[in-house]
Write a protein that binds this DNA or RNA. Structure first.
Lengths: 337, 337
DNA sequence: TTGAAAGCGATACCAA
DNA sequence: TTGGTATCGCTTTCAA
């Protein structure tokens, strides 16, 4: 039997308990004063009839909707999903729900979604994208609600959360070195990506100013091409490769294997992103850098809540640490040369 | 300058226009009667002061929140994201927003999310998962709002939307045959998955009762293993392989190439899922079956809206057609034998 | 200790 | 043509 049982209001509880609505409200919210007996009786009746307060009514009263919006243009969800998961996790105990709006780089659509969220009185908006040096196609400055940018470019004076690319790169390099690798190369995406540049700079700062960096595409194919270039050429060959993302790393690992080189024995490889579906299916599975996007999401959620509740938050760019995920492509750190 | 400009209410508009709130309401909603002049004046003043009606207040009045919930336990978002995108697309013009709740197979978490959504008076809930023969860890029957199951098991008498696995399999087989393949094999996931079984049954119904089906895992590794088994054995070798998902297909394609077999010239391969990240990066790129999850989401959105607005919807399982996405792994259909 | 009434922001009926 | 008032479900002040 499908049927929408209609909702029970505080009025119904009052009638059932033989008291007034105000008494019920006070009883359930543990406010006002009354005999413990009355309070308990009302509480048990309320649960008995299955009363749940209408959040809309409370929102109207408190001017707080216990709702935040997540705006994204990342269609693959590679960044959005872990972020979303972290946000949700941080906010669910506070009774806050998340509106997800996928706007696909369409300014008009973005505006429609933002307006809809504002109309619904969201307590704040978290903006996220697929790269940290591009902003969403909509201006979020001057909105009547707080905004937090997570893995996206933000406006002057706003709160921006991102992963610490340089630190992530260090992590990868340390790992390669601790397994005894000395001839390191960095294969990464286009130079036009701030995160590619950031990692590459960290790489050269750490390994040396003329450490080799190959900029290209974020694809497996680029991984293959790079290996061809590196190993067909004369001269010194790398024994450790730090890749700008897991797809490149996969291409690199496959290309090395096809050349009869063993990973990690002959060449160790570290990826970036910890994109499960790529990293875990690569043979050998990729040791890689995780940007901890879920944690980033958690912090974004808590931050937007702070802002919404009027607590002070320092504006500016905040970089959160990456961590190393050890699988097989980089050997074990106690392994000599 | 960051600052939350406080919201303007209908009252402010009324004051600015020198009329009553009821007149403003009527003017803006094109109801009631008044001089076109008054109406226009009020409208322009409203836009002038940046008035946007508080959706919460309207919801309270209309008992409609213009909000739906999407409940999912699919962490990768492989099914959820396209679905979400379709739902959102179908509902955004109606001013409906979507709460996304990721519940990760945790019954308690699921209940918390469902309760939060109900408290916020969602107009309906769409439940989705990562396989069609499992239900979410929460009972959605008897809720005071309509529920639609999309790519998830549903309850007796509910509305369930899913992809037509059998038809998808037919599509793959037709494609293989139209490129002249005659010795077809199906490599797929565990027999315990309804969708694997459904596709396998369709395969045997079409190709013949003793057409070979290999059940295994949904992984690249299984693709490799199957190829080893098939090509190391004595006897007839397949010239066309239909894979249960794109990951298996990728393993198959890689394994074939490693054996010196050309894809698609020697063996044609068709995948399933059209998971861009896998299908497009495979060399050659995978011809595969797309479950049209976005369209499925669109229909789920429209259906939940129908239900929410009291329009009749036939209960039961509704299978939506898959489509073929042609890339390179299956050659072109005008190619002879 | 309990309850009546005002009000959150909007809409709609019914008078004027 | 316009405006006062009740209402949606809830919380909170203030009076009883």
């Amino acid at each position: 039997m499908v049927g929408r049982s209609s909702r029970v209001t505080i009025h119904d509880v009052a009638k059932a308990a033989g008291v007034s609505v105000s008494t019920v409200s006070k009883a359930l919210n543990d406010t006002g004063r009354m005999t413990a007996e009355t309070r308990d009786k009302i509480k048990s009746i309320a649960t008995g009839v299955g009363f749940r307060p209408n959040a809309l009514a409370r929102s109207l009263l408190f001017n707080r909707s216990f709702t935040v919006g997540l705006l994204t243009n990342d269609t693959y969800g590679r960044f959005t999903l872990p972020l979303m998961s972290g946000i949700s996790e941080a906010l669910v105990d506070q009774g806050v729900s998340v509106f997800l709006c996928a706007i696909e780089d369409d300014p008009k659509l973005a505006k429609i979604h933002v307006d809809a969220m504002l109309d619904k009185q969201v307590d704040g908006i978290i903006a996220t994208g697929k790269r940290i040096d591009r902003s969403l196609p909509v201006d979020l400055a001057g909105l009547p609600v707080p905004v937090v940018y997570a893995y996206s470019q933000g406006t002057e004076g706003s709160v921006i959360l991102t992963a610490d690319d340089a630190q992530g790169a260090q992590l990868a390099i340390s790992r390669l070195r601790s397994t005894g690798r000395r001839r390191l190369v960095h294969i990464t995406g286009p130079e036009s990506f701030a995160s590619a540049l950031e990692r590459a700079n960290a790489f050269q700062r750490t390994v040396g100013p003329d450490a080799k960096v190959l900029f290209g595409e974020w694809t497996e194919a680029w991984g293959h091409q790079s290996i061809a270039a590196l190993f067909d050429a004369e001269g010194e060959r790398p024994d450790g490769i730090f890749c700008g993302n897991d797809q490149i790393a996969r291409g690199v690992v496959d290309a090395l294997r096809e050349r009869g080189l063993r990973v990690p024995e002959d060449v160790a490889v570290v990826g970036f992103d910890n994109w499960e579906i790529v990293a875990a299916q690569t043979r050998p599975a990729l040791t890689t850098i995780d940007m901890n996007l879920k944690e980033l999401g958690r912090i974004a959620g808590l931050t937007i809540l702070d802002l919404a509740e009027g607590r002070p938050v320092a504006p500016g760019l905040r970089k959160l640490p990456c961590s190393l995920v050890v699988r097989q492509s980089c050997g074990s750190s106690d392994q000599g040369n």
